[in-house]
């Protein structure tokens, strides 16, 4: 791609990554969540691929696969935390520990330390979706080889 596109991509990719991390991190407070934030981060990876070519990212293929499996395993492990009651039981909500602050009912400004297992599941699913969709785009860019610019 041309130098204008490359310069603008260098400026805008950190912003997209920060917005995706914000959408994942505040998934239990504001609209969004793991899937949406992961899609935003994967779109940043796709922008890098389209602009800079897939050659530079080729070495990270195995890392993306590893992160995707890690996200899936973390999601299922967090679901198994509540196996004492039921699968997917939210054991951390309201317990006072990590992410366990009780929420006052009704309108409130939103506290990050709430939600129980929801923020951890948001991170797991966000990691999984970002790495999965990013590796799909990367594999498609690497297929056939050759014409990167």
């Amino acid at each position: 791609m041309s130098v204008v596109v490359r310069t603008i991509a260098r400026i805008i990719v950190p912003m997209i990554l920060a917005f995706g991390a914000y959408v994942i991190m505040h998934g239990h407070l504001t609209p969004g969540g793991g899937f949406q934030g992961g899609a935003v981060i994967a779109s940043a990876i796709a922008l890098l691929l389209v602009v800079f070519g897939s050659g530079r990212l080729a070495g990270h293929k195995n890392l993306l696969s590893l992160l995707e499996d890690l996200g899936a395993i973390a999601f299922v492990a967090l679901a198994f935390l509540g196996i004492g009651c039921t699968f997917f039981r939210n054991v951390l909500a309201g317990s006072g520990g990590l992410f366990g602050m009780p929420v006052p009912p009704g309108p409130n400004p939103g506290f990050l330390n709430t939600g129980g297992t929801l923020p951890l599941m948001n991170w797991a699913v966000g990691l999984k979706v970002a790495a999965g969709l990013g590796s799909v785009v990367l594999l498609l860019g690497l297929f056939g080889g050759g014409d990167d610019r």
Binding site: G32, Q36, A39, A42
Partner: peptide, 16 residues
């Protein structure tokens, strides 16, 4: 929520 998912998947990833 659906709007963010549609903008991320439909407008960005599919185009790429």
């Amino acid at each position: 929520d659906v709007a963010i998912a549609e903008a991320g998947i439909g407008a960005a990833l599919t185009t790429a």
